[in-house]
Amino acid sequence: MNLSRRHFLAAGTALAGSLALPAWAQNATASNGADLPPLSGRLPENPLVLTPRDRAGKQGGTWNHALVGGGSLSMLFRYQSYEPTVRFTPDWSGVTPNVAEKFEVNDDSTVYTFTLRKGMKWSDGHPYTTEDVQFWYEDIFSSTDLTTTGQTFWFAGGKPAELEVVDAQVFKVKFAEPNGFLPSSSPGPIRTRSRARRNIISNSSTSNIIRMRTSSPRIVAMIAGSHYSSVNAACRKTMFTFRTPNVRR
């Protein structure tokens, strides 16, 4: 479901009379007490609208988890940072835009065009744009220090993809040969991989966006595909804080 910010706000205005707290008054202050812009200034122009499975919720409360360590720590990652550019649908039947507003691919799967959401911001209010993608491509993906093997889904014909930044929201990923794996690059079930082999490219997930801070300066990483490899590479070097648009300090 797509709903522009204008329509979203119009709907919110209609609701305001019946609600004690208008939607955009939520989160009036940050967790550290700092003033925040109104919600309209915090959302992208085209926010992702989720339809509640059961009923709409009210903000508040704490979600408590318990993990037993080891492998189950991946659940922390899944709960807090599964925010790929496009993501699997809850029933695994396809992919749906997530961070990206949309994406397209040409007929032979050599050029993918992603469009980010205009006005989307990191959790500190800094704009999230293709500049962040370019940073990942140049300083993470292309760095042999951080990414030891490269992101295999970003390779085709033995060559790494080329990144072309079109503007602040649009970027293209270009391959030397057809690559149906790019959209399936998020770690997923084998079934999904087999779908990709059949080149049903419209139904899988692509890159993940992670912002890491080692110490200073900040490292912004859009980690595509099996992001674990890059994260692990960084993890071997130093303890780090990972952050995505929804989990950033």
Binding site: F8, A23, R42, L48, Q59, W63, H65, A66, G69, P245
Partner: peptide
Amino acid sequence: NPYYWKVDTEGTQLPISTASTTRWS
């Protein structure tokens, strides 16, 4: 995250929960 880019159909910004804690053994 006060800048999270998702809302529900009622216009409530997500996530719903104010905080999430994870403990491990």
